[in-house]
Design a protein around this nucleic acid. Sequence first.
DNA 1: CTCTTATTATGCTATTGAGCTAAATAGCGA
DNA 2: TCGCTATTTAGCTCAATAGCATAATAAGAG
Lengths: 114, 114
Amino acid sequence: MASDHLSLTLAALADPTRRAMLARLAQGEATVTELAAPFALSLPTVSKHLKVLQHAGLVTQGRKAQWRPCRLAAAPLREVAAWMEDYRQFWDESFDRLDDYLHDLQSQGKEQPQ
Amino acid sequence: MASDHLSLTLAALADPTRRAMLARLAQGEATVTELAAPFALSLPTVSKHLKVLQHAGLVTQGRKAQWRPCRLAAAPLREVAAWMEDYRQFWDESFDRLDDYLHDLQSQGKEQPQ
DNA sequence: CTCTTATTATGCTATTGAGCTAAATAGCGA
DNA sequence: TCGCTATTTAGCTCAATAGCATAATAAGAG
């Protein structure tokens, strides 16, 4: 069943249609119909995709008359980033001591070096 | 079908069993049997999970007598990181100009031989 | 060659996910 | 109220995935 939230998020992101919907929402709110427009998919199908995204917390839906404007809620991506961080050394070529240093700098309240 | 590689990778990562297998491999090579040990799963099932990870390019398998030692191959995570980068501003609170500066610094040089 | 161990292939079942159409709900506007 | 638009629910099909047990393959040990 894989119902931990990270799994939910990754599963939601694993579908290209859903990623495209997120890309659209990154540019601002959109109604379900607007979101559906670029796809050759029925509205119920789009609605279902939306539900998956909402369930993962990646989208929130408001209410404006009969429209349900959707908004990106990217917080779950933090979870993904946190998970990936453990593997950083395996994929980030520039992961080295300076990298650590920069990350320390970063987290300790940024003043500009140099 | 969703057969672009990013989708493949995310789908592979969406399963907690597979993520646990990657976590194990992050500590070093392991045979299929070793990988299977922590799980209450049959070997064929584990073998299938491995195939998914291999298909996504997240694991490579060698050959040593009758063992097939598996190794982590985290390169596909770069793809995930690249995708997430477009959404950084939406989830990374410390996303600001300094952050950019630090990333520039990061990418402009320094390799460290092992 | 035979035995044993490690792994994968096959064939099966059950569950989930993506897609559809048609019907139901929600809210505006006349 | 009636009708129009937006969206979701219900019910279906099909394909994919996770799981199992059993059988086949691969390779070392005797």
